[in-house]
Design a protein around this nucleic acid. Sequence first.
RNA 1: GGACUCUUAGCUCAGUUGGCUAGAGCGUUUCUUUGACGUAGAAAAGGUCAGAGGUUCGAGUCCUCUAGAGUCCACCA
Length: 887
Amino acid sequence: MKFTPSYEPDKFESDIYNAWEQNGFFRPKAEDSEKFYSIVMPPPNANGNLHIGHGLTIALEDSLIRFHRLRGDKTWYVPGADHAGFETWVVYERALEKLGHSRFEYSRDELYSQVWDFVEEQRGNMELQVRALGASCSWEDLTFTLDENVVSRVYKTFEKMWNDGFIYRGEKLVNYCPKHETAFADIEVEHIDEPGFLWDLKYEIAPENTDSKNSSTPDFIVVSTTRPETLFGDEAVAVNPNDPRYKNIIGKKVKLPLTDREIPIIPDEHADPTYGSGAVKITPAHDFDDFEVGERHSLEKLRVISDNGHMLPICGERYSGLTTEECRKQVLKDLKSEGLLLGKKKITHAVAHCYKCGTVIEPTLKEQWFIDTEKLASLAISHLEKNEISFHPASKQKVLINYLKNLKDWNISRQIPWGIPIPMFKKSAEISSGTGEEVKNDSPDWIFDTRVELKEIEVAGVKYIRDEDTFDTWFSSSHWPIVCTDWTEAHGSPFYPLNVMETGADILFAWVARMIMMGLYVTGEVPFKSVYLHGLVLDEHGKKMSKSKGNVINPMSLVAKYGSDAFRLGILRGRSAGMSQAFSEQSVLSGRNLCNKLWNISRLIDSWVEDAKTPDAEETIPRPKTAYTTFNPGEDWICREIDSLKKSVEKNMKSYRFSEAVEEIYSTIWDKYADWFLESQKLYKNLPLLKATLEDILIIAHPFMPFVTEAIWQALSWTDGFLIAESWPSSLDFDPISAEEFERTKLVVSEIRRLNTVLKAQNPHYKIPPILFGDDSLVSENADLICALSKAPGISPTDGSPRGIRLALEGREVYLDVDEKTVASHRESLESHILSIGRELDALNARMTNPNYVKKAPAHLVEETRQGIKEKEALISRLKLELEVIK
RNA sequence: GGACUCUUAGCUCAGUUGGCUAGAGCGUUUCUUUGACGUAGAAAAGGUCAGAGGUUCGAGUCCUCUAGAGUCCACCA
């Protein structure tokens, strides 16, 4: 294969991916069961497109997987697809609406199969995109969140919990979206501070209860509320027991406005004497606080708002059927006309919204299934406190423990058809067919049964009807590490626990917390050894991406434009764990440039290898490792640099510092390998070394830029097989003295270049002069290289009569052979150089004059400082001497 | 109200147990039509590390406070 002048990713990527997949590199062999390195992908929504967060997830996870694969671990990366219960449901419901249909036209079972088809149609799309990002995952093991084994595992857990008494049926207030007509967990509700009003309503004290003998007793009480329309459900008015204003009316009754009901005045700490009027109406069926108050005082829970947000008939003909908003207006109008509306105050308060449609959440009284989370949470906390899971960033461990300590019971019922049916059946009031016997009183109200395909079942002569609700998706998702690894009670799984769970920091509570609780509950072991949480990917201005703002960056369009590797490099660059950070196309562009650079490096080396080939001198190249020897300047140095790159990538990957790893690869390839080593090799062309070092670089870079490195591997004339299956390089041999010598040679070249640039700036007609060197073995031994790298027209010894400008480098005797005029004009820059060295010297001297430093600092530091002072002093005196000469 | 995070170059961020002259990318300026790459090469400018105090021989790094930014949790009628 021939190298084109620039790397064109779209010509290679899909072929390479297919070749990898078809050759089975993504799947660990069955017999290799000893040392697995396993990661499961947080399942992207089956019916959706990947967003930038998935792009980041795959870049992170796949680089870990590829790194470990090259290191020789049996890696196992499981892709997934999420039925995404509610998310998908919203999309589907919208599609139905567009066709002029409503979900209420269909039965639950009909809806379920419709959505199944809908998702099936869309699913391939997501999988193609995961492939395009280069994810080296085991497709045969793809798990869909509604797969048979997932459902059966979820049912098993539910049954265990039911038997353990962790599950209870409760009538409680739940967060309810009147638009979607389903309940949510607390975590799915968004609290937003909004302006609103606090109205003062006049509740008259019922006349028959007024103590006529005591005229000091007021005949009404003012209650403050933000939701006047709920007054129909009021069951009491609460005042603080310590509030002197109301002490003597506790226990009396008030007339509920617009109705003919009377409700008591009760004492409760919940009433804050400093807020509003200090008296608060209690609506147990429609407010979380009031619910609690109601429980304390055994109040009725009267529902006055329907599931879809309309007033119920109990509110009276005038209000029944109105939306809550309409009803509020009407109530306020009526109260006003009756003189019962006393005041209105602007306030800001937190209002709960549906996280999907933004509709105001209506706390609604519902019978639902709840998980008693107390034992689950404390189990999780005890393992977390033993540091059985390492967190990146570490701070999230504390955050998670704090969350678990305050965890409330978990409502797992959802009133949407798209999801896993809850396997619970309720005893029917009807007498079961045939027997004619009465229902036995001792038969349970609810029974667990997995025959969810049936609407009703019969057990011991009793008829039971299926609960129509489905599970909260997080209930099944919390089993993800268990189900993906096929963990069983009998055999466990060689992949469980996972090595790493990598996901977004935003679902630490919703998902990670629940996986830990469930993993421990089901298997007794934590589900993963490490957690890496990435932050949000923000737009280039640091703003959250959103469709409405129009600042969404689509990963696929970046892949199409710059290539998959460029995207991966761009998204990993400068990103650290847990932080929400800006991302721009610019970083992808620089990733693309690196790919092209590496491509051209390889192109050059390959052309040298090809040029050297003569028909009769066909080399026999030992694979897998090219043997090499170092002869020339820079060769030991590049071996040292690659060796240190290798070690630092190992270290960074171990501590999940992806960005640092990428940065080091970038600078080694570009600044070291291309700009110094290859430039030097233009003189020497040590082919075995060039080949060996290029191979190492390709392997080390492969986890981060898999496609271009493989494309190069395939294009090189001497390599065979696949790069993905190569093994991580062993340590390179090098002579450290020779490496250090090249470092000093670089300094000479840089200084010559810098001087030339400065002098050129002073005089546009300046031409790069020849180089002279005195008694300087480093320069004489590297003369050709220095000459070539600095583009000087020539280099020669001074023969004892130095002239021109001497380089200000310690221990060097190198001159630029320039004319007298140029020498004189250089004086100024020399003076400023002396000043800056002087400042550094002062700093070092200050340290040494401090007796405590000399006494307490480590000896090697003190010695270094002493050495530094000596060198700087020598340099200054020499520079001063040069200044004398220039005069 | 509670918890957590952040503040380092024009921008986005590194800086691991305190230790040599605080780094990178992008951007900016100057130079280079050298046959791997202009998606390039060479060079340069740019930082009182938010502020104050403390610990220390030594603080971007540890502690306290202040100011600012952000995120999450929470029932404020």
